[in-house]
């Protein structure tokens, strides 16, 4: 049984890889299979985890039913009013709830960690000193300077009310450079991630499927 599943996985992996050469019927078949299976998988997950486990077991069969879940269920059903064009506008209510509740939940967190704490962290002594000797720690001082220039120029770049001209434009330009360096570093990390995924697949093909490894 396991043999069959390994063979299916291997053929599908190779089928998807064949896209690298060019689009072909095997890739199309794999793609269609993937989309179909995943759509069905998620439908089952949503049904089992949300409707059955969370709602049915929580609000209907539980010893102490959680009646709040009925509110959620009713709001969820309101989504279906979209199917009837005349009352379709009702489906905006649950949508409004989702958007509003998420915004509310995140607002404080966002504000604290992305704005206030960041500024708090930026405020520090420009000249760092060694704790023991009191001598100037040049490395750390340089680091603080870079963070400072980066924060200021980055913020200026994302200022939309003023055209990027003169001193303002030059600062924004520095901000662009900082962004590019950040993107470069991030790119490197992502390449690393992608290579790991490829290695994982090749390990499967050579090891589990062909049995060459180990």
């Amino acid at each position: 049984m396991e043999m069959i599943s390994i063979w299916i996985a291997a053929i599908l992996t190779l089928g998807i890889f064949s896209f690298l050469y060019k689009d072909n019927p095997l890739y199309k078949a794999c793609e269609a299979l993937f989309v179909g299976v995943s759509a069905a998988y998620w439908a089952i997950v949503f049904y089992f985890d949300n409707i059955y486990k969370k709602f049915y077991e929580g609000a209907v069969t539980a010893e102490e039913p959680d009646y709040f879940l009925w509110i959620g269920a009713i709001l969820g059903l309101l989504f279906l009013t979209r199917l009837v064009p005349k009352i379709g506008w009702v489906s905006r209510w649950p949508m409004a709830l989702i958007v509003g509740a998420t915004a509310g939940l995140w607002m404080v967190g966002y504000f604290v960690s992305n704005a206030m704490n960041q500024i708090g962290n930026t405020i520090s002594n420009i000249i760092a000193r060694d704790e023991l000797t009191g001598a100037i720690a040049w490395g750390e001082t340089f680091g603080t300077m870079v963070i400072l220039v980066g924060v200021v120029s980055g913020l200026v770049y994302f200022f939309f009310s003023k055209e990027h001209k003169g001193v303002f434009g030059a600062t924004a330009k520095v901000g662009t450079w900082f962004l590019m360096v950040t993107f470069g570093a991030s790119f490197g990390y992502t390449v690393m991630s992608r290579m790991s995924l490829l290695i994982g697949r090749v390990d499967f093909l050579l090891g589990d499927w062909l049995g060459i490894l180990r």
């Binding site: 290579m195 490829l198 290695i199 090749v202 390990d203 050579l206 060459i212 490894l213 180990r214």
Partner: peptide, 11 residues
Amino acid sequence: GLAVVLPLLMN
């Protein structure tokens, strides 16, 4: 592809 396959074989 080769850069991934060959080193894996080197173990």
